[in-house]
């Protein structure tokens, strides 16, 4: 938290405008709606306690988004939310029978289950949040090279071809 803005964002306004975005990111990370809600609720609770600082940032969403990822990666989350396998089944089933593009997406979602958390977080930040590698590295607390490595290995597992943007 380095910069401040003249007009702090109210907590209620932030929740009203960005909670859906946070839920969607959490859903991509955990693949389970209830766990996604758990993560977001936990993070919003923690954020509320220090909202005087977060609300004054230029981009509070970036900070809270990082909290979401950290919560997902945290040891506490691992204890409570380790059953990734099977989480995605309801969503896979809804599209797996559809031919073509939907089948491909279903396969990709299915393969997400096998990714280690760091790799899955990196993929979510890169391909869902569209963040550059430097930002991903900062969020994950690693070097840019390591972030690239996470993404590269994840793409190999997902059988996604490496491209220039990857």
């Amino acid at each position: 938290m380095t910069s401040t803005q003249a007009q702090p964002v109210a907590f209620a306004d932030f929740v009203g405008s960005r909670r859906r975005d946070l839920l969607r990111l959490a859903m991509v990370l955990v693949g389970n709606a209830q766990r996604a809600e758990d993560i977001v609720a936990d993070v919003l609770t923690n954020a509320y306690e220090v909202w005087d600082r977060i609300g004054g940032l230029d981009y509070p969403y970036a900070y809270v988004r990082r909290m979401i990822v950290n919560e997902y990666l945290s040891w506490r989350s691992r204890l409570r939310r380790t059953t990734l396998r099977g989480d995605l089944e309801p969503y896979i089933g809804s599209v797996a029978d559809v031919a073509g593009e939907h089948a491909v997406r279903a396969e990709l979602i299915s393969r997400l289950r096998s990714l280690p958390r760091q790799q899955r977080a990196a993929v979510a930040l890169r391909y869902f949040e569209d963040l550059p590698h430097a930002d991903i590295a900062e969020i994950l607390g690693c070097g840019v090279g390591t972030a690239r490595s996470h993404i590269s290995r994840a793409l190999a597992t997902l059988r996604v071809a490496m491209t220039e943007e990857s």
Binding site: L23, M27, S94, V160, A161, S166
Partner: peptide
């Protein structure tokens, strides 16, 4: 092999499966 565009679409499909409880 799949494309990164397909991966993006898959991730958004997954996000879309999140029930809208924000309202």
């Amino acid at each position: 092999m799949h494309t990164s565009q397909q991966l993006r679409a898959a991730l958004h499909d997954l996000a879309d499966a999140m029930p809208d409880t924000a309202e």
